[in-house]
Each structure stands twice: as structure tokens, then as C-alpha cells.
């Protein structure tokens, strides 16, 4: 507990603040204004905001692709529209076929924005960072998480969608009760959720547990949620021309992402692949292809 700060009787002297030079990088398209949006990320292609949509209690993500001043305006509008619609259509396709992705709630492809359901939780990247900080123990939770990642990617590939940018920042772990059926033995039956433990404690059924334990439990729970795939800006859907090659490249990109950002989790990547291998007809052929893709990747890096 920090000591209580004592308010000075007079505010400290401060240089008069200069006239603000900051201007929003991009004027937001209607109906959005900077007052009702909170910046999440500013990528090269898209600005991602958190806001609310339809009701004041429905959080959402607003993904805005601002005009690129260096591009011819007609071409720019056409490209923006194509990208945005490609992303939205793949998301709706995924929903139709039961792959867990954010809902599409709104779009204005002329203006360049897309509104998606807010996924409560963290990115796999964030969750694994937390896990690594806690000592990276090969506990049941992290192994289960790997399996769910593999099956989520498998389901996506199984419906004919290739993600195109499969990194651990584009996979989220949804907070809350898990819905995925998964495989036997993975369900954490008999283990209480944090909220159940809290409720019990509040009811006085068990002596209240130390808050350290609750915190630990909460961190372990982070590993438990359903996997939600996000960021379909580079995705493509095809029922015929989908090559195992494209699927294998998705896996390769994910593998490299694990190696680069989660070295401690890299040995566990096998779990991702083995779960993937069981997830749809044809998955094994993709794993075979992955070996070729790896080889080529290695050659290229030796040459480069």
C-alpha cells in the first residue's frame, strides 16, 4: 500500500503548457469521434480502436483503414474497400462454419471502417508472456492451450480459409467459460474457477484463501479460455484452389512467431502441430508440406 499522498496547499508551479501541436493523425469518419474511441494499436495498415456499438454496454473494436495520401485517391478507395470487404467476408464465412472469430457488427467500406465484436481476454502473445514471467513451467494449462491453438487453426483450414498473418498477436484467449469440446482428458474438471472460489469464500464455506493464491489461479485461468482467431486482413477463402502449401505457410509463420517471441514455449509448439494433425481430413498432408516450407525457409536465410 502506497503512503497516502498529501495534497499541497497550492498547486506546484508549472510552465504554461504550450498550445497543443498534437493533431489527430487522421480525421475519423462519421459517426466516430476521438471522444468516443480509445486507441488500441496503430499498425501500418489499420488503426484499431476500442469503443461501444449498438448499446452503451456493448464494447466493440473499430478497425479503420485511413486513406493513404501517396496513393491515387481512386485506387486508394478501391483497395481499401477490397481489403475491408475481404476481411469482413472471411469473418462472416468463419461464423457460418462455426469457427470462433469476432462477429462483424458494422461496416462502411466507402469510409474505410469495420466494427467487430470485442473479445474479452488477451492475445496468446500476452498470455504466454505472463506465463514465461511466472517461470514457464510445463503445467497442464499451457499444454492444453497449445492443443487448442492447433485445433483452432485446423478448424480454420478445414473450412478452406488461410489466415495469412498467423502470429500470436492475432490469436486471442477468450476470458470466461470454455465452450470448445476439444479432446478427452483436456477438460479441467473438478478444478474451481476463480469466481467459484471467490463465491465459496464469500459464502464462508471455506476459510478465505490468501489473495496470492487467488491471483495465481487467475493467471492460470488465463491459459484456459477458448481460442479466437482475429485480424483477417490478409486472409483468403477458397474451396477448390486452397493449396496445402498456403496452409503450411500459415503454420510456418506461427512457428516462427513462437520461436521469435516465446522461446520458452517453442518446445511446446509440437503440441500445436500434433493437435492440428488430428483436426481435419488432410491436416497430415499439410504437416508433411510444412517440412518442405521449413527447408526452403532455412535455405533462404542461409543465402540471405
Amino acid at each position: 500500500m502506497a503512503p497516502e499522498t498529501i495534497e499541497p496547499t497550492a498547486p506546484p508551479l508549472r510552465a504554461p503548457s504550450p498550445t497543443p501541436t498534437y493533431r489527430p493523425l487522421h480525421a475519423l469518419p462519421p459517426p466516430f469521434t476521438s471522444s468516443n474511441l480509445e486507441v488500441l494499436t496503430q499498425g501500418a495498415e489499420a488503426l484499431v480502436y476500442r469503443s461501444v456499438f449498438l448499446t452503451p454496454h456493448t464494447p466493440c473494436v473499430v478497425k479503420y483503414r485511413p486513406p493513404k495520401p501517396y496513393r491515387h485517391p481512386v485506387l486508394d478507395r478501391r483497395l481499401t474497400k477490397a481489403r475491408l470487404l475481404a476481411e469482413a467476408r472471411v469473418l462472416v464465412r468463419c461464423k457460418r462454419d462455426g469457427v470462433d472469430v469476432p462477429r462483424v457488427l458494422g461496416a462502411d467500406w466507402e469510409a474505410g471502417w469495420l466494427v467487430l465484436e470485442w473479445v474479452e481476454g488477451r492475445t496468446v502473445r500476452g498470455v504466454l508472456d505472463g506465463w514465461a514471467e511466472r517461470g514457464a513451467s510445463v503445467e497442464e494449462g499451457v499444454v492444453g492451450l497449445m492443443g487448442r491453438v492447433g485445433r483452432a487453426v485446423g478448424r480454420l483450414h478445414g473450412i478452406g480459409v488461410v489466415h495469412g498473418d498467423l502470429t500470436t498477436s492475432n490469436l486471442m484467449v477468450r476470458q470466461g467459460e470454455r465452450k470448445e469440446e476439444g479432446v478427452q482428458g483436456e477438460q479441467s474438471k473438478g478444478r474451481m474457477t476463480t469466481s467459484e472460489m471467490r463465491m465459496l469464500a464469500e459464502d464462508g464455506e471455506t476459510p478465505s484463501f490468501p489473495s496470492v493464491e487467488a491471483k495465481r489461479q487467475e493467471q492460470r485461468d488465463e491459459l484456459e479460455g477458448d481460442i479466437v482467431l482475429i485480424d483477417f486482413g490478409l486472409a483468403s477463402h477458397s474451396t477448390q484452389n486452397l493449396q496445402d502449401e498456403d496452409r503450411a505457410v500459415d503454420l510456418y509463420v506461427l512457428e516462427r512467431a513462437f520461436a521469435a517471441t516465446h522461446p520458452k514455449a517453442e518446445p511446446l509448439f509440437q503440441k500445436v502441430l500434433s493437435a492440428y494433425g488430428e483436426s481435419f481430413k488432410g491436416a497430415r498432408a499439410v504437416l508433411k508440406k510444412l517440412e518442405d516450407v521449413r527447408l526452403r525457409g532455412r535455405k533462404r536465410s542461409m543465402l540471405g
Binding site: V92, V104, G106
Partner: peptide
């Protein structure tokens, strides 16, 4: 509902 919302938005 998710699919319907997506269809309407698009």
C-alpha cells in the same frame, strides 16, 4: 444471430 448481423452489415 452472428451470421445474420454479418450479412446485414455486408
Amino acid at each position: 444471430e452472428s451470421v445474420i448481423l454479418g450479412m446485414m452489415a455486408l
